[in-house]
């Protein structure tokens, strides 16, 4: 994988390289260079299989990480391309022209993370969340617990005690001056 990275750096400006396993590495790439790099990897380097495309929300850094995982079956290699994009008004170039299946991934990312992929087919169609009006739910600042508390009713009859607090109350709680 290091060899591949060395070859690629001669043609592309690449970011951090992380070797995760002998057959899996991650490379950070600038958003503007991704499409050309993917095309090169697909057509010249044998990474013909798009394994997945997903996002990671680094809320505290104000960034989304898009991970394009591609596979070279002949060489048994997986390569993850990490693209960091701004979280506000997140938008990224579509790759549905490289892999038809990418349109589905991009549709899901639009729905779940609110990332725009201009030109991607049926991008704005509801995918999983038909009729969803709240914030994109896979963003880190969407609180599932709070949502479920606000949306669903707790079944009555549930209560619990903290062992330490219960023991304090039973055994030695401050009873004031006695």
């Amino acid at each position: 994988m290091q060899q591949l990275y060395d070859t690629l750096t001669q043609r592309f400006s690449l970011g951090e390289f992380t070797r995760q396993r002998a057959d899996l590495a991650f490379i950070t790439v600038e958003a503007v260079r991704l499409h050309a790099l993917l095309r090169h990897l697909r057509d010249q380097e044998g990474f013909t299989h798009l394994v997945l495309l997903t996002a990671v929300d680094w809320l505290e850094d104000g960034q989304f990480q898009l991970t394009y995982l591609i596979n070279n079956r002949a060489k048994c290699q997986d390569l993850g391309l990490r693209v960091m994009i701004a979280r506000d008004n997140a938008s990224m170039e579509s790759i549905h022209d490289l892999w038809a299946a990418a349109a589905t991934y991009q549709r899901e990312l639009r729905e779940m993370f609110g990332i725009d992929f201009p030109g991607s087919p049926r991008l704005m169609d509801d995918f999983i969340l038909e009729g969803w009006n709240a914030a994109p739910p896979y963003r880190r600042d969407f609180d599932t617990l709070e949502y479920s508390r606000a949306t669903y009713r707790e079944r009555p009859g549930r209560e619990t005690r903290d062992p330490a607090a219960h023991m304090k109350q039973q055994l030695y709680g401050d009873k004031g001056d006695v």
């Binding site: 330490a164 023991m167 030695y172």
Partner: peptide
């Protein structure tokens, strides 16, 4: 430690 707090009492 499992943080049960039985020790506090």
């Amino acid at each position: 430690c499992v943080s049960c707090g039985l020790c506090i009492a």
